[in-house]
Amino acid sequence: MNENAKAVAATQTKARIDADMMGIAGAVLLGLTLLFAAGFAQASILHDTAHDMRHAMSFPCH
């Protein structure tokens, strides 16, 4: 493998790793958003409809 090909391979690996990290960060962000809406937001419509689930899942509810 010449130097040029090595550099290309390294760049590709780096790009793949960065895309993986974006995916992981995206998953955490999506998880946080859903969790906040379902478990923690105090808006009364969310609180009332999610009420039984919050108690049953041991979130601090009210």
Binding site: G31, T33, L34, L35, A37, A38, T49, A50, D52
Partner: peptide, 19 residues
Amino acid sequence: YTIGFSAVTFTAYAFFMVA
């Protein structure tokens, strides 16, 4: 509603788990 929010909550947990 309880079933729906349970699905949302566990999807959130699943996102953390796949991460």
